[in-house]
């Protein structure tokens, strides 16, 4: 998963030495080795450790201590006694309570279903759009379209939520007005359990499809143009070229994104749901993260909230680790 970087300098200098005559190459090689040994011994290592102090401290306090703080899921936590103070240990009571909560299974189901739909369509839609963009011959038109469709990615769900609440309103929203002209009755996009998941998935696509095309377009740009020429000579039209050259050329990226998305199956998108939902649609739209917030912070049931969060973190750990394992083992993926 985490590999050592390959030393470029060693391979490069080796090649350079081999180019000249045998004697001079040996001299040069010895000189090179000497120099490298000198460099290695001379540059002290400690400044590198000093540079890492701030990050290690901040990550330790704000990423690792919360992990330690998860022990509050096994306690009857009182804020007054503090995170590091003596708390009453209650074992698995919070988890027992959690699995008996009537809405927990429903929330799990909602989370999995919403996340699954987002992953599936979030992979297909950008792929299709990237292939369509690739067929545009006019680079100017292509660039303008790309610029426009990337924009929603940079606006927050607070702002998009404000816009969506306005335009999707059944009484005054412009969307229902247009649907009215087509003879379709007002639809309660944000206030009906039949429509809420559809609204979540489609607005997520609206926000992120354009951004998602970047990776595919980059992969398409990396395909050897000779392959297209060969295909043309073999009589393949544009559609056949897409099918037999472009898609096989980017299948590696598709597989990688698919594998990495495994880690997101419990992330239904807190920011989006939180800015769009209301108690009316809890039945279809309440997800783990929103439940943690309401139980843990709004109702101040800290231990129970931490227990729900821990359940999610542990399942995610297994999923993310497996996805990274698969990606590094089979798809030649490297993070650090």
């Amino acid at each position: 998963m985490v590999r050592e970087p390959v030393s470029d300098s060693e391979s490069k200098s080796g090649g350079r030495a081999g180019a000249s005559s045998l004697v001079s190459s040996q001299v040069e090689m010895r000189r090179e080795l000497d120099r490298r040994r000198r460099v290695r011994n001379k540059v002290p290592e400690w400044p590198l450790h000093v540079m890492l102090i701030p990050a290690v401290a901040v990550i330790f306090i704000y990423s690792y201590l919360p992990m330690y703080g998860l022990r509050m899921a096994f306690q009857d936590f009182r804020v007054s006694r503090g995170l590091f103070g003596e708390q009453e240990f209650i074992g698995l009571d919070n988890f027992r309570f959690l699995f008996r909560m009537p809405n927990f299974l429903r929330v799990m189901g909602n989370t999995l279903w919403i996340a699954f739909l987002k992953i599936a369509f979030g992979l297909i839609a950008p792929l299709v759009v990237a292939l369509l963009l690739n067929e545009l011959s006019n680079q100017g038109v292509k660039r303008v379209i790309q610029t426009v469709i990337y924009l929603p990615h940079f606006l927050s769900w607070v702002i998009l939520g404000g816009i969506l609440v306005t335009i999707l309103s059944p009484s005054s929203g412009i969307v229902n007005q247009v649907l009215g002209w087509l003879g379709i009755g007002p639809i309660f996009f944000l206030g009906s359990n039949d429509w809420f998941v559809f609204t979540l998935v489609s607005t997520e696509l609206w926000k992120s499809t354009g951004w998602g095309t970047i990776l595919f377009l980059a992969a398409i740009a990396g395909i050897d143009p000779n392959l297209y020429e060969a295909a043309t000579i073999d009589g393949a039209g544009r559609f056949k070229q897409t099918l037999h050259v472009t898609i096989p050329g980017i299948i590696h990226v598709i597989a990688l994104l698919l594998v990495l998305s495994l880690g997101d199956i419990l992330n239904a998108g807190f920011d989006q749901v939180f800015n769009l939902y209301s108690p009316v649609v809890y039945e279809s739209g309440d997800i783990i993260d929103t439940l943690v917030y309401r139980v843990g912070l709004l109702n101040a049931q800290f231990s129970l909230g931490a227990a729900i969060g821990m359940f999610k973190s542990v399942v995610s750990l297994i999923l993310i680790s497996s996805s990274y394992f698969l990606a590094t083992r089979y798809l030649n993926y490297r993070i650090f």
Binding site: M1, V2, L52, A55, V56, I59, I61, Y62, S63, Y64, L65, P66, M67, Y68, G69, L70, M72, V79, G82, L83, F84, D289, V292, Y293, G296, L297, F302, G305, A306, G309, M310, K312, S313, S316, L317, I320, S321, Y324, I335, F336
Partner: peptide
């Protein structure tokens, strides 16, 4: 060091303990 940073990408304490740390600091 790399593992130290990498592990935070795999696992997190979640909302409630993080809030408690911000409170405690």
């Amino acid at each position: 060091y790399v593992w130290f940073f990498f592990l935070t990408m795999l696992f997190s304490g979640g909302l409630i303990p993080s809030y408690m740390i911000v409170l405690a600091t």
